[in-house]
Design a protein around this nucleic acid. Structure first.
Lengths: 193, 193, 193, 193
DNA sequence: GATGAATGAGCGTTCATTCAT
DNA sequence: CATGAATGAACGCTCATTCAT
């Protein structure tokens, strides 16, 4: 098995177990077993459990980001772009429930806090398609004049909540409902007439 | 120290530690130490850690609920009532960050899932002021015709996100911003012209 | 409640719980509850758990001894006397399963060893009807010339085993079977032709 | 150290401590210390304390059984065979006092009750040399017509009692005394002329 | 005298991490 | 390199005993 394959095997196993059972329901030994490697082997690829979790998150963010950008065209109107992105996020979460569950675990933990702080206050220079979109909307006076953080909240807050409820079976999101939910988020963002 | 005082001492210590470090960062021994009682003492007041956590939640829910209803008048128009509730929730979270952090930990855990399921699908008969408000809004065709679960998401999703960001210091919510944020949530809910 | 009544209440509760659950399945708090007294109260009557257990045993031994002697007449022939005693022991055990279970727990524990040592090697001066009977049998050359300890074993070993099996439901001892079992023990003891 | 050596080290330590102090006087930490391994190591070899105890018993039963059968020839007369077995049991207990003390602890505990029930009422298909012997004796009308359970009691009850007393130093069993004791047990079993 | 709340050492068990093979 | 046996600190919880009321 090539080096990268083994790393992936471990990452997949870890993500799955953490998604299903939380950080504390995913002991390293269980991850090793699921990945069909020795327990010690994990430490050749990841310095320790914290590092493993953070790298898992990075991988996931990248994957999600590339999905979001598929079919995204900056020429379209703001609303259409927002709805494209929102629907893509929601669909990704729904069709990749393990990824979503992991993301939730991550965000709701000390890991997530640190990560979010870094993201909001520089420390990272990755361009953020949402930030761009919001800034453009602000410049055009198309969306409400609220702090960036609040705009994020209005856009993502409902999506995350609704995705979790779908995965838990509290609601069934079909294509139409996804669209309507994202449109409702837009209504929250946009300047009202 | 009176019985109730000691119970409260333990509850406060537990809530604080859980809020700050999560369930797994709040061992019983540490709770005992913080509450300045013996480790065994906790078990005179709470059958076990699970029960402690659930009672903490119950207490908190009650406290929050009574705050929400203070000054709530069912005669006011829908929008005004929604904004009253939303602003009250947000203010509570901001001024009681430990309570809020605890609530988040709780909701994002098996405890929370069970609780939410019971709440959504009967099993509890406490009347829910939000549900009533949404049902009235639906009947009046004032808010969007979406499943109850989605309405909750549109109403609470942004508030929770924004409350967390305030507590983490990513944004400062003053009275005006609180009001505007809640109004934006209402825009998300209400039927657009 | 008079002092002795309360002592008895505690003793009965303790015996019952120990019989049913073993020493470690009978916490002091549970004994107190069953005896309807405060946990601390037990310590007014018994210095500590060890003392309680030993006194329980003493009480029981006394009770058993008095039952054995009921209807015992030293004038009857050896065999008849032996059978009287053996059947009485067996019947007592069967009709007082809690007492028997307690005795077993006691004998099979460090308590029992100490007690037995004291009994065999003096330290106690209570006269022992069995010892007398055996000594008489030895003198008459009616029973086998074996050490006293072995004679005890031949007499009691089977009775204890069979009593336990009855209580556990592995066999049902009726009057006839009791008699035959005790007679078989006598066959073990007596000098064969 | 090889895997089996370490398992044995743990098993020996556990057996010794349990024999000397009972199940509750043999905490896992103490077993680990005596076996010179870490506390967690025990759990690589035995799922938990219950399993450890049951495996200890199994091992012991096997050892004892193989000793019993050494030199046992089914062609010999009943009495000779019985005496061979009885003397072998007694000798084993005397020369392996830790094993014997452990067996006693085991039999006098919930573990033992379950095990005995299974043994008496099927659930196990291992052939039992004693049962065979008794059945043959019954068929030949050589031993008393009593329930199997009572026959066991007459055969083993005295042996167990006497073995314990030897180990505790209350009597010294030499070869001659062993033989005479077992013969006395036979007298208890056999039909009297 | 009687109480029962409080204690804290001790229990069985888990698991992130190390290191000899 | 890869392994997985070994570790031991830490966990949730129990209970004999004490002592303020």
């Amino acid at each position: 098995m090539a080096r990268l394959e083994k790393r992936d095997e471990i990452a997949r196993a870890a993500l799955e177990l953490i998604a299903e059972n939380g950080f504390h329901g995913a002991p390293m030994a269980m991850i090793a077993e699921k990945a069909r490697v020795g327990a010690g082997t994990i430490y050749r690829y990841f310095e320790n459990k914290d590092v493993l979790i953070n790298e898992l998150y990075r991988d996931l963010e990248e994957r999600l980001c590339s999905v979001l950008m598929k079919g995204y065209s900056p020429e379209k109107p703001l609303r259409a772009r927002f709805i494209h992105l929102g629907a893509a996020v929601l669909r990704y979460c729904i069709f990749n429930p393990l990824d979503f569950r992991f993301l939730e675990q991550f965000h709701n933990s000390p890991y997530g806090v640190v990560h979010r702080r870094d993201k909001l206050f520089g420390k990272t220079d990755q361009k953020d398609v949402y930030r761009e979109l919001f800034e453009e909307g602000l410049a055009q006076q198309a969306i409400k004049d609220l702090p960036m953080v609040v705009l994020y909240a209005l856009a993502f807050g409902p999506l995350i909540t609704v995705a979790r409820d779908h995965i838990l079976g509290f609601v069934v999101l079909d294509d139409s409902l996804i669209e309507h939910t994202v449109m409702a988020c837009w209504d929250g963002l946009k300047r009202q007439a």
